[in-house]
């Protein structure tokens, strides 16, 4: 994660050199669906997303996006069945359960912009395809189980950005993420709807 932040800082530092490009840093909140919802239930308010886009003409851009979402749930006193490494027995354990999912999608993103670059508002639709790293963790008492895998991921999106100056803009967007299950389902299929709010540094010349 540290590397990612260093990378972000470097990229932002380079921003005045960019031509027909933009950098976008968003705060991200996500609503879990299906298997993620079953495991952690609650929405994630811990997330961010860093994006780079390169314009191809007035209406298209290609780019990349890296995000990070943390899901967490304190299940309080809960009974569940568990296996331990090294034997086949099923143990019934009652205790405070803490559940986490970390989701880090890394996507190549293509976008279409409905209006030209002189518009006051630039709505867009796009799609991201790539891979994601997901980690699922459960703690009960002094025991814990962690599993992480890479997944195939994709994310259609819609949003808009609002230029303030010709170098600065605000971004608002929503994305639906889908990432395939891994490790025979021990890492869940991830489906979530994410909402982004953030700032854009750009050069459209």
């Amino acid at each position: 994660m540290k590397k990612l932040i260093i990378l972000a800082v470097c990229l932002f530092g380079l921003s005045p050199l960019l031509k027909a490009q933009m950098l976008n840093l968003n705060y991200q909140m996500s609503l879990p669906l299906k298997q993620v919802k079953d495991f952690t239930d609650k929405a994630s308010f811990r997330g961010f997303d860093l994006e780079y886009h390169h314009f191809l003409g007035e209406h298209f851009s290609i780019g990349a996006s890296v995000g990070w979402d943390v899901y967490y749930r304190d299940k309080k006193n809960t009974t569940g069945n568990f296996h331990f490494n090294g034997n086949d027995n099923t143990y019934t354990i009652t205790g405070n359960q803490y559940r986490y999912i970390n989701f880090v999608p890394m996507l190549a993103v293509g976008r279409y912009y409905f209006t030209d670059k002189s518009s006051a508002v630039r709505p867009y639709i796009g799609i991201g395809v790539g891979s994601s790293w997901a980690e699922k963790r459960l703690e009960v008492g002094q025991f814990s189980s962690t599993i992480s895998r890479w997944q195939f991921a994709m994310a259609p999106e819609a949003g808009m950005y609002i230029p303030v100056t010709d170098q600065f803009a605000f971004n608002v967007g929503a994305r639906y993420y889908y990432a395939t299950k891994a490790a025979h389902g021990r890492v869940p299929e991830i489906q979530q709807v994410s909402f982004n709010v953030g700032i854009i540094l750009m050069s459209l010349k």
């Binding site: 304190d74 354990i93 009652t94 205790g95 405070n96 986490y100 008492g141 002094q142 025991f143």
Partner: peptide, 12 residues
Amino acid sequence: GADKIQDYDVAM
């Protein structure tokens, strides 16, 4: 995650 001592108690 767990904070208090009793948060680590389990019955198995």
